[in-house]
């Protein structure tokens, strides 16, 4: 598998295509009815991009996000992540790619309620079997970066919404993934904390992390350099603003 990465022709360190989707189709069956969640989606995303995926509910944007995050497989089409065809990987290999290359941020944060902020941030390191001493260093660094040091030993129910999302972001980025996938990251936050969180994500993007945000929020979507609009499972517009 790693050989493929080496011989892949269009890899150059700077303008490499991080993600390339070709002819992706995904159909769900709900009882008797068929839902065409993704229709013939073609998309190329380069490293370091800031993308907003917008569209009404049911337009397939969440399915796209799940697919990009390797939680779902396409029925048809090819998906290359960093030049590597990930549609042929088995479950364990997918898990490894998710762990190392992809960070998820959810609308409802999805923190483990019984674990402290520090333990929640540590979770990806624990799952990939990092030794304990190594983990402690990384976690304390992350807590500091996200301004959570004094909240380290609080459980999620003792944190504010903004703090919870910061913990979630710290958790998503602790293994330095290539892509950050955010599903309505400000959906459960008030405007000012939402703004704070978006700024944090944008800062990460400025440091070179590819950021893909799925949102209903026009204002949030407008901040992205590239806006992809979806309708009925297909991409209807893909605009790169001149900022």
């Amino acid at each position: 598998m790693s050989d493929e990465r080496l011989i892949s022709p269009d890899i150059s360190p700077l303008t490499s295509s991080l993600i390339s989707l070709g002819g992706i189709n995904r159909t769900f069956y709900l009882g008797d009815s068929q839902v065409h969640a993704l229709r013939d989606v073609n998309l190329t995303i380069t490293s370091g991009e800031y993308i907003a995926v917008m569209g009404p509910s049911g337009s397939g944007k969440s399915t796209l996000l799940n697919l990009l995050g390797l939680l779902d497989r396409p029925d048809e089409g090819s998906y290359k992540l960093e030049g590597r065809d990930v549609t042929t990987l088995d479950a364990d290999e997918l898990a490894a790619v998710r762990s190392e290359r992809i960070g998820f941020i959810f609308q409802s944060f999805h923190l483990v309620p019984r674990l402290t902020a520090a333990a929640n941030i540590e979770l990806p390191l624990v799952l990939s079997g990092f030794p304990k001493a190594d983990r402690a260093k990384r976690v304390s660094q992350a807590l500091q970066e996200y301004g959570l040091t004094d909240r380290a030993h609080h459980r999620p129910n003792e944190l504010s919404g903004g703090q919870r999302q910061r913990v979630a972001i710290a958790r998503a980025t602790i293994l330095r993934p290539a892509v950050l996938l955010a599903d309505e990251p400000t959906g459960n936050l008030d405007r000012s904390t939402g703004e704070e969180v978006v700024k944090l994500l944008e800062k990460l993007n400025a440091q070179g992390m590819t950021l893909i945000v799925v949102t209903h929020d026009q204002a949030l979507g407008a901040r992205a350099r590239r806006q992809i609009r979806m309708e009925d499972g297909g991409v209807v517009s893909d605009i790169v603003s001149a900022k």
Binding site: A95, R98, F104, V112, L123, L127
Partner: peptide
């Protein structure tokens, strides 16, 4: 269930 979904998203294997 939520937590299990999260663990999978964070890269936990089925076996884990």
């Amino acid at each position: 269930t939520n937590e299990i979904g999260l663990l999978v998203a964070l890269g936990a294997r089925q076996r884990t």
